[in-house]
């Protein structure tokens, strides 16, 4: 990585001696002129040198791979053989008819829905709870982001154990203890979604609550006072004042969650344990990103994996645009 740092900072000493004293003798005057020239060069080129590292590195490791995905997706490409020839749209044709792809998409969207809706509702309630005069406000606020800062992989391991099979998992033991049947957390599609959604929500609810709290605190208090005078109940104030005023923030969090959750990978992969990228013995919780990994590493099918990636990318962009469109419509209506 040192090689990258080389190009960035121009010599700090450049032009440092060019102060404005007027030198009488010609040699000093020549030096002054040279330092002036250097300083002009410095002013002209420095801005580009300063932004160059960002754009170079982003170009090579961000933009290039993204665009190259399209190229790879139009080829038969394997790990060992490399490029094995142009395939046209074959990979995309395969994708449209691939049950596994649709299954993965269904899982990804399904987990997204059952995770995000309760998460954002809970976050709103939590923010409202915190938006009061309370003791230890700072402790409780810190608690909210504690899950957010932890290691995703580590906590996915912990939760996978909590949602373990019949004799291991805490939750199943609890269920057995109160006389209920244990749940097949991995075997059943919807229970597996639930377990994964719990991991996601444990991590993100507090973070979103904190964002909502900040937005709530910027609502002027007299709005509520007026509502108090009109005799509106707390519940009514929350629904009719707080939520409408928070709408831009809520949409912002929905966008962020969408972008993140469409690429869901870590939690379900760790939850699957030894089944790896398959996401359950019948792909009950295989997400699109897991399918990309499975095609890449288990089947060495780079071309097809790239096609799946590219479709996922378009999907993320598409959902982002829908969100932006919604936002602008709501902003326009206000």
């Amino acid at each position: 990585m040192t090689s990258v740092q080389h190009g960035a900072p121009p010599s700090p000493s450049r032009g440092a001696d060019g102060t404005g004293t007027r030198p009488p003798d010609p040699r000093e005057r020549a030096r002054a002129r040279r330092s002036q020239m250097l300083s002009r060069l410095d002013i002209r080129t420095s801005p580009y040198l300063f932004i160059a590292p960002f754009f170079l590195l982003f170009g090579v490791f961000g933009l290039f791979p993204l665009l190259y995905t399209v190229w790879v997706s139009l080829h038969d490409w394997s790990l060992i053989g490399g490029n094995e020839g142009f395939a046209g749209l074959d990979n995309y044709v395969r994708l449209v008819g691939d049950e596994k792809f649709w299954n993965a998409l269904y899982n990804t969207l399904g987990i997204f829905v059952i995770a995000v809706i309760p998460q954002l509702l809970l976050a709103l309630l939590l923010a409202d709870t915190l938006n009061r005069r309370i003791r230890f406000a700072n402790v409780f606020r810190m608690t909210l982001i504690l899950p957010y800062i932890t290691s995703i992989a580590a906590l996915a391991i912990v939760f996978s154990t909590v949602f373990g099979g019949e004799q291991f998992g805490l939750i199943n033991q609890m269920l057995t203890a109160i006389g209920l049947d244990p749940i097949a957390w991995r075997g059943d599609r919807y229970w597996s979604w639930t377990a994964i959604a719990v991991m996601i929500d444990w991590r993100w609810t507090g973070y979103n609550a904190l964002i909502y709290l900040a937005a709530m605190q910027s609502i002027p208090k007299d709005v509520y006072e007026a509502a108090d005078l009109d005799g509106a109940s707390r519940m009514r104030q929350f629904v009719q004042i707080t939520i409408p005023l928070l709408r831009p923030t809520i949409i912002f969090t929905v966008i962020i969650s969408t972008i993140g959750q469409m690429q869901l990978f870590t939690e379900p992969t760790i939850f699957a344990a030894s089944l790896g990228y398959a996401g359950g013995n019948q792909g009950q919780f295989q997400t699109v990103m897991m399918l990309v990994f499975q095609e890449t590493f288990n089947y060495q099918n780079f071309g097809y994996a790239a096609a799946v990636s590219w479709v996922l990318f378009l999907l993320v962009v598409f959902m982002g645009l829908i969100n932006v469109w919604l936002t602008s419509r709501i902003r326009g209506a206000q």
Binding site: F54, F55, F58, V60, F61, G62, L63, F64, P65, L66, L67, Y68, T69, W71, V72, W77, I259, M262, Q263, V292, T296, F302, A305, A306, S309, W310, L312, F313, V316, G320
Partner: peptide, 21 residues
């Protein structure tokens, strides 16, 4: 503007070509 746009691009989707790179 270009910097702002880069923030919105989910670059990790370019995983396969990045591996090739």
């Amino acid at each position: 503007v270009a910097v702002v746009i880069t923030m919105a691009v989910p670059v990790q989707i370019g995983l396969v070509p990045l591996l090739i790179l």
